[in-house]
Write a protein that binds this DNA or RNA. Structure first.
Lengths: 183, 183
DNA sequence: ACCGTAGGAGAACGCTCGTTCTCGCGTCAA
DNA sequence: TTGACGCGAGAACGAGCGTTCTCCTACGGT
């Protein structure tokens, strides 16, 4: 098995376990068991657990925003594209293994102790907000709307994570629609 | 020192440390050092750390909702009372030791592993949402508004926790005002 | 004064877990 | 064929921490 493959398998295991059970409760030995990558190899690829955590969050960030953007791209009407964000949240919330927002969860777990993780969470959230802002601008809507829609999306993510179910996404979408109509 | 006092001091230390640094990174020895209550006494009062955590969350829940309600009580106009929720969030976010919503953080840390903690978080959030619903009803506004305002408040809490600052509260209040005006 | 008990300080125990080390095996170049 | 090397399996090490135990002191009732 070459390094690139081992790395991917390690990250696959990390994502599955860290996201599903939390970061602190997953040991490097669990990663080894799930990934099939030996401890020696793991430590060659990632000198410490913290770096595996960072790589996990970074890869997930790229994929998460990619999936969101891909969904939005399916629409052309600018206002429809904004609402598509909430459609996608609903789809995401409904996935079998959905356990809330990985960054909000990680922040609750490590934000107080790891500045690196805290920075990654802030960067991810800023990127998401910037993306929303670009959609708002493209739709010719007032910039101030960005903050409202962002808060609705964050509220939906945290609520869906805690209570389960997809309803928060639908509620957020309706609120968003109403705010957009109010101009 | 009598039992009641020891219990209060233990809970004071637990709240300060658990909220400030996260639950898992605080040891029972830290609680002892901060509270001045000996380990033996701590284990008499709380047979295991998990029970101290539960007591911490429960006492904080009562106080948090009490403070919110007290702030809302200062107003009589029903719509003003709803907006006062966001005023209070802004005040809370601005406090020196604010580190986000204790329940969202705890859920990120322990929600996947402790059903008890997960239940407490859900109960707290349900109580908050029910309270919002009662304010919405009292103001003669449509029930559907509750979900929107709740998501705005949750989004503001999680965002203020991650990025710091009080701005999310102001943004949420403006969005809430707009939604209430849209009827 | 004397005993029984409660309580404090802190050592001790057992477990988990991040990280490193040992050992043995297979591979490949010369 | 041989020897150096990479790698996997898993033991080992060391730290942190939840929990319990030991020992000692203080005090209240008789």
């Amino acid at each position: 098995m070459d390094s690139a493959t081992a790395r991917e398998q390690a990250l696959d295991a990390a994502e599955k376990l860290f996201y599903g059970r939390g970061i602190q409760s997953v040991g490097m030995d669990d990663i080894r068991g799930t990934s099939g990558v030996s401890l020696k190899r793991l430590y060659q690829l990632f000198p410490a657990k913290e770096q595996l955590v960072e790589a996990y969050l970074e890869r997930r960030d790229v994929r998460w925003r990619g999936r969101l953007a891909a969904h939005v791209e399916r629409h052309t009407d600018p206002e429809r594209r904004l609402l598509a964000v909430f459609d996608w949240l609903e789809e995401w919330f409904g996935e079998e293994d959905f356990r809330g927002c990985a960054w909000i969860n990680s922040y609750g777990e490590l934000g107080a102790r790891s500045e690196r993780v805290a920075d990654q969470v802030r960067a991810h959230k800023r990127a998401f907000r910037d993306y929303l802002a670009s959609l708002v601008t493209a739709a010719g809507l007032p910039e101030a709307l960005t903050g409202s829609l962002y808060l609705l999306a964050e509220g939906a993510m945290v609520t869906a994570g805690i209570t389960g179910g997809t309803r928060p996404a639908a509620e957020a979408r309706e609120a968003a629609r109403s705010l957009m109509a109010a101009r």
